[in-house]
Nucleic acid binder design. Structure first.
Lengths: 236, 236
DNA sequence: AGAATACACATTGTATACAAAATAACGACC
DNA sequence: GGTCGTTATTTTGTATACAATGTGTATTCT
């Protein structure tokens, strides 16, 4: 049974999302319409609709007469990220604890199972995707349509930042991952117990762990940069 | 000089946004592709791209094989709104005070000028649009790409809720509008003074005023509704 | 040789024709 | 008379052809 165009369209969207989240498509990378049409066997019309949809969700950015590219992950946006994330994450977790359905809790446990699996055997990409899925589900649990757009954007760049900085080469980092995994378990427990306060606290803890991990990488780079290097041209 | 297709497309998008914000297009209303193509002299391809774009921003919702309609403003979403708005508004105001440029402050003053004008002479629609513009500018000032998606969605429904509930027929309501206008002035002052704390406080005050105004209408309506009326069919 | 311009090529945006799906209208059957 | 099933009509989704815009290259002129 050949799959319909609609299915291929969905597959294309899923592929692009995955590629963006895992940095298979790097921030700023140009997307080739013709090539993608060929690869996914759809014409340009539905392809471009997918582009617009993903642009609306923050995966891509469209420039008039100059095609689609993967959303940038620039310095200013990273600053924005650190500002907005704690607030939104906390609110989402709190609401998730209040509103989660039994079905959603099951889905969350499944996602955590996959995440644990990714920690052992998986690649960085698998880990990032599994973690992304876990938090997406908490977003669905919160179910607040006004919070979700921002939350989902944060998740996109969280995954990409994690892909950049979370290659666990030191003992400390591997340990952090284990702790993150345990926090996920605690989050599930808090949600299942409908413990709003605990969920919010765990969101904060989880975020702090994540932030510290990132700062381990960002900070030294900033300190090691001599002033003279500021005149250096940025690489293409 | 005839305007290009791109201009007509932008005009279409602006028209649709205005219509949604002012309830000229009611929540849930179906949009007729053929009619809009005719009216704005564009073909279906760019029209449908506009639809997708506006759907991504929260103005419309698209259902597979069943066309575009104006986003609903249902009971559950109203609840979501009251939950998310204070937090996001506060954060945006705070950031606006920190980051506003001189140019943006000028734009805000201009918007406030128009809002004041709308209070005297304008229709409800003019008032809602002017207020919307004012707050949109504060969003631009905050300039946090992770907060803006949620903030802009809130603004859409804030305008629509205001259109529903803010027909100032009592003395109290007219007075509230005057107070809202004064709060706008205070907000401008706080931003210009880079007073983060004051801006956040004003956001809270402004929100409370808005919420009280809305509750004046929502509450009695809920109490006055006899149980028997629940079986009544909703009007088309 | 270097700069500027014109031309050719590639890519993006739009219009239209066609296919698929949903809705409405009709008629048969119970 | 009402309900179900079938067929027409409308509406939505996709493919393709065409137009417009951007980009690269070659050529000319200084």
């Amino acid at each position: 049974m050949k799959d319909s165009v609609g299915d291929r369209k969905a597959g294309l969207a899923a592929h692009l999302k995955r590629s963006v989240l895992t940095l298979a498509l790097e921030p700023g990378a140009d997307l080739d319409e013709a090539q993608l049409c060929e690869a996914f066997d759809v014409s340009r019309t539905p392809l471009r609709e997918v582009f617009r949809e993903l642009a609306g969700e923050g995966y891509l950015s469209l420039r008039l007469n100059r095609g689609a590219r993967v959303s940038d992950l620039s310095h200013t946006t990273l600053r924005d990220f650190f500002l907005a994330a704690p607030m939104i994450y906390g609110a989402v977790m709190r609401l998730a604890a209040l509103n989660a359905t039994a079905q959603q809790i099951e889905a969350l446990k499944l996602a955590q199972f996959d995440f644990r699996d990714a920690l052992r055997t998986g690649s960085g990409a698998h880990r990032a995707l599994a973690n992304n899925r876990f938090h997406q589900i908490t977003g669905e649990m919160a179910g607040n349509i006004y919070l979700l757009p921002s939350f989902n954007r944060l998740l996109i760049d969280h995954a990409r930042i994690a892909m950049t900085f979370y290659q666990p080469q030191t003992q400390q980092m591997a340990q952090n991952l284990t702790e993150a995994c345990q926090q996920h378990d605690a989050i599930i427990a808090a949600i299942e117990a409908r413990d709003e306060g605990a969920a919010a606290q765990l969101a904060e803890d989880h975020w702090n762990l994540s932030r510290n991990q990132i700062e381990l990488f960002v900070m030294p780079a900033a300190l090691d940069m001599p002033m003279g290097d500021l005149s250096r041209k940025t690489p293409a």
